[in-house]
């Protein structure tokens, strides 16, 4: 713990996102795996930032597991949330619970 404390947590080595541990302000200088990144916006605790640049369709890995897919591109250090990612679970699951293929939304 000799380096300055990062406001970001890596939960699993395979992850493509980092979790915000302490609130980040736009303009803050971040270190992501040794790369200097300037925060583009305010992000509150518990939210996710891209660990590397991600493209639409890429799986998002957190806890080493896929938690959804990107719906838009994001640069390293960019906020990852509802505006640019979606669940891979809900669509197929809704059909299953409703019990048919139709109208399960």
């Amino acid at each position: 713990m000799s380096t300055p404390i990062s406001p970001l947590i890596l939960l699993h080595p395979d992850d493509t996102v980092l979790v915000v541990r302490a609130a980040i302000r736009a303009g803050d200088a971040l270190d992501i795996d040794g790369n200097p990144v300037i925060a583009a916006q305010d992000v509150t605790v518990g939210h996710k930032l891209a660990r590397r640049s991600l493209a639409a369709g890429d799986k998002v890995l957190k806890y080493g597991a896929p938690i959804g897919s990107m719906t838009a591109d994001v640069a390293m250090g960019g906020h990852v949330h509802m505006h640019n990612m979606k669940s891979d679970y809900i669509a197929s699951h809704t059909r299953q619970v409703v019990g048919g293929g139709e109208g399960g939304h």
Partner: peptide
């Protein structure tokens, strides 16, 4: 509920992974 955006959780699977993470890998 899908998309529990509170506290930065984006998807159902992400929310459940928080509980599941107790199990390790």
């Amino acid at each position: 509920a899908p998309g529990n955006a509170e506290g930065g959780l984006t998807t159902q699977e992400e929310k459940s992974m928080g509980a599941y993470s107790k199990s390790g890998s």
